[in-house]
Write a protein that binds this DNA or RNA. Structure first.
Length: 378
DNA sequence: GATCGACCTGG
DNA sequence: CAGGTCGAT
């Protein structure tokens, strides 16, 4: 039986990308609620699905190591472009059939020993996913120059980086996030994939599945199915949004929003059921290349008032659309066009002066914004 | 615009 | 109550 790869064991083939820990912290980036698809499967080893493949990632001081597992009876590694086309017409049934008959040769062939062309694609895919061309060190310096509060605490948390996720996965994961907390969202997304996604491979009793394509999510039976899986009222939102995209826009629509201006993309997303300002901003920031999008929740609002003396919404009780936009604008003015990236460190701030914050605040603790253990090793 | 209650489920 | 959204005041 296949097992999760471990760098120290070395039985699996590992490839690497030069990457300083200061430019990427796997634990903070993968485990803080951007993507709900990664699990720590060994010490410092993160396993998840990305680009239609199962990966295990780990890092040393100056190197990012990755192992890509072969999918028994699946097609070659796909890149971002090809995936885009694939989201369209065909669904699992057809895909599975095609897969089992053709591509026999690759079943025998483990990716561990596969062509350098594949290796190159994998590296490219990973660099794209982590957006390694964006130099985090430069951004940190800019934010620190502009923001005294940032400079006080940010240096402790270098390497928190924005992922460039698949828009379909990002959208439907964050529709699940409403009125909900991270651990449950993770479970829901997992059940969603296991039920509607194409199986990829099995590692140590864990079955990994691709994220379901739009077509599968749009099926009218999906709402009932997801309600059974404990999605609650979000079941309808998921199915309806998928259906709306498929029927009114087409399967490529989400991807085309990558080249639309920020506010235009956000408005477009907001026409989908279950997508408000917060979810739309999450999708813009984490999958549509809108680095200026700042998802605002009550926690960010508190930080804005407490740490930044932001006057917006003074004496207001609810987070209205107007106030939401004002707070976003406030941080965009402060941090510039990568404000969304800077915003992802906000949870780290409250953690950094967590002791004082917790004593001063009240006794609610860190409010689940950051999960326990996330700071280990910092 | 701003406020309010409902919406599913589990910790 | 939870990292929200929707529809009705």
């Amino acid at each position: 039986m296949s097992q999760h790869a471990l760098l120290s064991v070395g039985a699996k083939a590992w490839r690497s990308i030069p990457c300083l820990r200061s430019e990427l912290r796997l634990d903070l980036t993968l485990g803080c609620g951007q993507s709900f698809r990664w699990r720590e499967t060994g010490e410092g080893h993160w396993t998840g699905v990305m680009g239609g493949r199962v990966w295990t990632l780990t890092q040393t001081e100056d190197t990012l190591w990755y192992h890509v597992y072969s999918n028994p009876g699946n097609t070659a590694l796909i890149n971002g472009q090809k995936r885009k086309a694939e989201v369209g017409p065909q669904h699992s049934e057809k895909k599975l059939k095609q897969v089992s008959t053709v591509k026999k040769e690759e079943d025998e062939l483990d990716l561990d020993a596969v062509s350098s062309e594949q290796d190159e694609k994998a590296g490219t895919l990973l660099r794209d996913y982590f957006q390694l061309d964006v130099k985090l060190g430069d951004l940190y310096r800019e934010w620190s120059d502009a923001d005294q509060h940032f400079s006080q605490t940010a240096h402790i948390f270098t390497g928190v980086r924005m992922l460039r996720q698949d828009p379909v996965e990002c959208l439907f994961s964050f529709i699940c996030s409403s009125n909900n907390h991270i651990s449950r969202i993770q479970g829901m997304v997992e059940r969603l994939c296991n039920t509607l996604g194409t199986p990829l491979c099995k590692l140590d009793d864990t079955h990994y599945h691709d994220f379901p394509p739009l077509q599968a999510l749009a099926d009218s039976k999906v709402e009932a199915c997801l309600r059974d899986l404990g999605f609650g009222y979000r079941a309808r939102f998921l199915q309806q949004s998928a259906h709306l995209i498929m029927n009114s826009h087409g399967p490529d629509w989400l991807y085309t929003l990558r080249s639309a201006p920020y506010l235009q993309a956000r408005d477009a997303l907001r026409t989908l059921p279950g997508v408000g300002l917060k979810v739309a901003d999450c999708v813009c920031l984490m999958s549509l290349d809108k680095s200026e999008a700042v998802p605002v929740d009550t926690h960010v609002w508190q930080i804005a008032k407490r740490d930044y003396n932001c006057a917006a919404g003074h004496g207001q009780k609810t987070l209205t659309d107007k106030l939401y936009n004002e707070i976003g604008d406030f941080f965009r003015k402060l941090w510039g066009c990568y404000a969304g990236w800077a915003h992802s460190m906000v949870p780290c701030f409250s953690l950094a002066d967590g002791r004082t914050a917790m004593q001063r605040d009240d006794s609610h603790g860190p409010s689940g914004y950051i999960q326990a253990g996330q700071l280990n090793g910092s």
